[in-house]
Amino acid sequence: MPTLTINGRSMSVDAANDTPLLWAIREQLQMTGTKFGCGAGLCGACTVHVNGEAVRSCQTMVGDVAGKKITTIEGLSAKGDHPLQKAWIAEQVPQCGYCQSGQIMQAASLLAKNSNPTKEEVVAHMDGNLCRCMTYSRIQKAIMRAATEMRTASAAGNERRPT
């Protein structure tokens, strides 16, 4: 029975090693924020982080992530208040909302490395995530808003830091 480290907790799942991580998360652990969209790595709805990298959980097998640090939308922030989640609300991004967990997780992996992305970098990073409601312009705006907030927070943190 593989043991997974998800959102900081260690959990064993009753699933064969060749089970896609997506289904282990959704069915075994009953965390349904991560969505099934295409099963082929073409839409991004199932995006989670493995050791901080955005991956498609429908293409990632349980046996390959044992011992690695997995983060889902449920674990992105303690109270749904990651700068991206706040920005998603401020910009009123979601329509049907089904793809948005994946969009947020994909965006979070960008901002973790680059808190000042250009529009082109955002598009290049996000182009694998489909939104059938076509909320793309709001997704872009929300990423830029969150990036600004993260930079501001980080600058404020720097100021307070003793020299």
Partner: peptide, 13 residues
């Protein structure tokens, strides 16, 4: 909208 940013909105799936 908030429930669609934190994974709590429940769809048929």
């Amino acid at each position: 909208i908030p429930s669609k940013t934190n994974g709590t909105a429940k769809y048929g799936m």
